Amino acid sequence: MRLLVLGGTEFVGRAVVEGALGRGWEVTVFHRGRHEAPDGVKALHGDRTAEGGLAALEGDGKWDAVVDTWSGAPGAVRDTARLLRDRVGRYVYVSSCSVYAWAPPAGYTEDAPVVAASPDAGEGGEGGYAEDKRGGELAVLDAFGPERSVLARAGLIIGRYENVGRLPWWLNRTARGGPVLAPGPRDLPLQCIDVRDLANWLLHAAEGDFGGPYNLISPSGHATMGTLLEACAAVTGGGADLRWTDPDLILTHGIEPWTQLPVWVPPGSDLHDALHSADVSRALATGLRCRPVEETVADAWAWLRSLGGVAPLRPDRAGKGVDPEVEARVLAARDGVPGTTP
């Protein structure tokens, strides 16, 4: 297989490149040059947001498939897809479950309504992340058609190379030890996917003959808040004491789900239905396999330790984690310390 990866130096793109090289594929990486490309690839440089930024992709180069992880304005996807449509067999676009119109019901499938969007939206437009991703989908469909377009609607992605900061925050927090605010309930079902499992499926799609949208995430309950945080505490060995805390008490103290307590959203909420209850039967039927969360956590911790505990975070993503003083205040209220809000 001859594979073109747009990006390929960070998180999902890097995992895709490593997976393809492991299969013995010929890999070309097109990126801006801000990070070193993995060894063993042909590197092309260009900025998709700049005039003439696709020049390195012009010419007679051909590939069996392209994998695109772009998450900005969809105009970049539109221009790239149009340039490549006669020289690439299949376009695999890493989209997001965020494209579904709010709020998708629990158990939503790929047929659920999506947000209104345009493939022609440019930088600085009024659209947000959901509209950008949906616009990217439309751009791919316009250039490649439904049979040659794979729309991988990913959910929560975790593992090595994570540059968003969710799992790295929990790993560093449990490594610090002591009482840890563990948002309950302990058996709260989660949906997440190891970046390597996502990459494996993307490569499978690149060489396959299927197209259209797929919810790309583990089955709901493949992991729970308990299995995730207990794995973090075990692998870091920091003596973390997980203090499982009622969701109402957490919310009463103004803590923001998902950001201040990464991954967690309260049970029974629209957020939980949207983020942790998608139907993934279509992806499973095409070969999606998800490893145990304990394996993901251990691999991410080994990678994070190799970096001295500091993950390389994207500048366009909000910071994650709760302030230690706020955490202590909630734990004190949980334990009935005098002078704190019960």
Rank of each mutant, 00 (worst) to 15 (best):
H276T: 04
F210H: 11
D111S: 14
F144E: 03
G211R: 12
S306I: 07
A332M: 07
S118M: 04
L44E: 06
E10F: 05
T340Y: 15
G75Y: 01
D323T: 03
P183I: 11
F210P: 01
G211F: 09
L288A: 07
G339N: 12
A55P: 00
A20V: 07
H276Y: 06
P338A: 13
R134S: 07
H222Y: 04
R90T: 03
F30R: 01
E131V: 00
A15T: 02
E295Q: 12
V235P: 05
A117S: 13
V67W: 02
I255S: 03
G89F: 08
K320T: 07
T236D: 05
R243F: 01
R176T: 13
V88D: 05
L54A: 10
D120H: 15
G321Q: 04
H204V: 00
R173W: 01
S96W: 03
A332G: 11
S277N: 05
R305F: 03
G159V: 11
L21I: 10
R243P: 01
E51C: 06
E51Y: 07
V94L: 02
R82D: 14
R32A: 11
H31C: 05
G135T: 04
L216M: 12
P168S: 13
P168K: 03
E36L: 14
R166E: 00
E230D: 14
Y93C: 03
V265D: 06
G165P: 09
R48Y: 04
C97W: 00
C232Q: 10
L242K: 08
S220N: 06
L3C: 12
R166L: 05
V88G: 01
A43S: 14
G308M: 13
I193D: 00
W264S: 01
A50T: 13
G159D: 08
P146K: 10
V29L: 04
A182E: 06
P219Q: 14
L83C: 08
V150T: 10
S118A: 06
G52S: 10
P247S: 11
A199H: 09
E294M: 01
W70H: 14
A233Q: 03
P179H: 08
H45R: 15
G319L: 15
D64Q: 06
W244N: 13
S281Q: 08
A15F: 03
D39G: 14
R23V: 10
Y161C: 02
C192S: 15
N200G: 15
T69A: 12
L171H: 02
I158V: 15
